[in-house]
């Protein structure tokens, strides 16, 4: 038989356990262990930086969670949830290194979240979700690789997460190719999505104190990688400004877009309605 014989690309699933996604039949049990068990609690600037990365992962997981049941095809429901679970696992590890994960997720207000604005952008149609995934996963892959190489408290997390994120990037690439080079309609939608989110990409590379990674230095590499995919997909890399001109700041400074308040309202309401309760 002329099988499409290939070994799995991307990370082996056996390496995916520590992000809260369970091996064997132990879903509930693994999700229950403290994700940061054994991980060092951070302090000062490193702590703020880790928390910002945790916020990125948490907010994007929350957005992807909104897709559950509504994906274009059942297989894609499974794929998007896998990505969301990886991100939620990263978020739990990172937040737990800087405090109590649930207090941080459920009891902070908008301005106390330091995620980039890109991840809080609404899902839109499937093209918008894929464009957001492409921009963010290429960034996250570069970032985690640098963090893993650098050593330090975040290196173990980064070494594991970089494999997860490589798969997210691959997923986004595959879909970018298919939407860009699919039908006229999908091409138009994908180009619109890339253009629409472009102004939130510059912020990804603003310096982040305490991280120990030169983020601005990753910008060019990111642009090249994204451009390569976009071109293969017969699309055009957006040319407009990649950040908003508003001087008040952006996500990393705790300034967010309007829809973020609603995202938090939904995420936090139940937890806040029962102060002190455990779940």
């Amino acid at each position: 038989m002329t099988a499409t014989e290939q070994t799995t690309t991307g990370p082996g699933t056996s390496e995916r356990t520590a992000s809260g996604h369970a091996p064997a039949a132990a879903g509930a049990a693994t999700a229950g262990t403290s994700p940061a068990a054994g991980a060092a609690e951070l302090s000062g600037a490193a702590r703020a930086a880790a928390r910002a990365l945790g916020d990125d992962a948490l907010v994007l997981a929350q957005r992807l969670g909104e897709w559950a049941g509504d994906a274009p095809v059942l297989e894609e429901d499974v794929a998007l949830t896998n990505i969301a679970l990886d991100l939620l696992g990263q978020a739990r590890t990172l937040l737990s290194m800087t405090g109590d994960e649930d207090e941080l997720a459920y009891l902070r207000e908008e301005h106390e979240f330091h995620n980039v604005q890109l991840v809080e952008q609404p899902n839109g149609d499937f093209a918008v979700t894929i464009a957001r995934q492409l921009y963010f996963s290429v960034y996250q892959e570069l970032l985690y690789a640098a963090l893993a190489a650098r050593g330090g408290e975040l290196a173990p997390l980064a070494a594991k997460a970089v494999k997860e994120v490589a798969y997210h990037r691959d997923h986004a690439e595959q879909w970018t190719l298919r939407l860009g080079d699919g039908t006229e309609e999908s091409h138009r939608r994908m180009q619109q999505a890339l253009d629409g989110l472009w102004r939130h990409t510059g912020e990804l590379f603003a310096p982040l104190d305490g991280l120990g990674v030169d983020l601005p230095a990753l910008h060019e590499e990111w642009r090249e990688r994204v451009a390569a995919v976009v071109e293969r997909a017969t699309l055009t890399l957006p040319q407009g400004p990649d950040r908003t001109p508003w001087a008040a700041g952006a996500g990393r400074q705790g300034v967010h877009t309007e829809s973020f308040g609603r995202l938090l309202a939904e995420m936090q309401y139940l937890h806040r309605a029962h102060p002190g309760a455990s779940w």
Binding site: H21, A28, E66, V78, T81, A84, L85, H271
Partner: peptide
């Protein structure tokens, strides 16, 4: 209830569960 799960642990569990249902449908 995924977006409103009251703890991150519960959110992960519920996501994995709903995902299993998609898998079972498949």
């Amino acid at each position: 209830w995924i977006t409103r799960a009251p703890s991150l642990r519960r959110k992960a569990i519920l996501m994995a569960k709903v995902q299993d249902e998609a898998g079972h449908g498949l």
